[in-house]
Computed example of a mutant assay.
Amino acid sequence: MSTLLDLDHLSLAYDTPEGIRQVVENLSLGLEKGHIGCLLGASGCGKTTILRAIAGFEPLRAGSIRLGGEILSSKETQIEPERRRVGMMFQDYALFPHITVEKNVAFGLRRLDKKQRIARVEQLLELVGLAGSARSYPHELSGGQQQRVALARALAPGPELLLLDEPFSNLDVDMRERLAFEVRDILRQTGHTALLVTHNQAEAFAIADRIGIMHEGALLQWDTPRALHERPANEFVGGFIRREALMAQRAQAGLRMNAD
């Protein structure tokens, strides 16, 4: 497989009254076409800022972002977000509450004629298991159903790359893991390349082909889930994986006790 997304020595920073605040420094990774990648780390480690930079919402201080070999961002180049062939699914889903599910999904399809829009919306709602909810409004749906609508809307224009920002964080633990598997299966079916950011290890290991462990703006290891478990790059990565796995086990044990 060929590399679709290439981040080369990325640096991102903000100007503050106290000076420059470095958010991400010298980060590089490659994501192959058709693969699902995940940036995993605690809040404030820079993972969402990377997603925003790929989408075109944050300028780079150094490095470059390429998609399919084309430079999207560098110090000299900044392609507009709408021209990047990148779809984004936000943490809060960002659905329009005053229009129906079918109109939410059709929002990015204005370049198609009416017949093509209707066919594309029907295809996507079938894909995400919401064929009977086209005329519903977002507030009439469960959190998991709203998430599926957001995914359908992000996929509708046919982006080369899909970005997912903490997409399961508003759901309860049981629903979160189940939907992570469902989203993975949908992306496998469509063949999309996707990059997810999360602080939840269970989500990352459920969905991703490659996982990047982030800490304080640095990418410590970009590897397969198995390699992270068996061959952590350093003590921090090994400790992070073990600690998060233990917390997940305790959470599952608590859920079983509550169910009993």
Rank of each mutant, 00 (worst) to 15 (best):
A94W: 07
S43Q: 10
L125R: 11
T100N: 09
F205L: 13
D185V: 07
V197L: 09
P159S: 07
Q221I: 00
L27Q: 07
Y137N: 03
L130F: 06
D223T: 03
T3W: 11
P17T: 04
Y93Q: 04
E235R: 15
G30T: 11
E177F: 14
E126M: 11
V101W: 06
S43G: 05
D209K: 11
L164M: 15
R66S: 14
L112E: 02
S169R: 10
Q221F: 01
Q249Y: 06
L219V: 03
G41Q: 05
D260C: 11
T190K: 11
L130V: 04
G191W: 06
S64Y: 06
G143K: 10
A253N: 08
R110G: 09
H192K: 15
A156D: 03
D8L: 11
I54G: 01
A55M: 11
N200W: 06
V23I: 15
M247Q: 14
F168I: 09
D174Y: 13
L162R: 13
F205T: 07
Q146G: 01
F168L: 14
P81L: 07
T198A: 03
P17R: 12
D113A: 05
R52E: 03
A180L: 09
P17G: 04
Y93W: 10
G108Q: 02
R148M: 11
D174H: 14
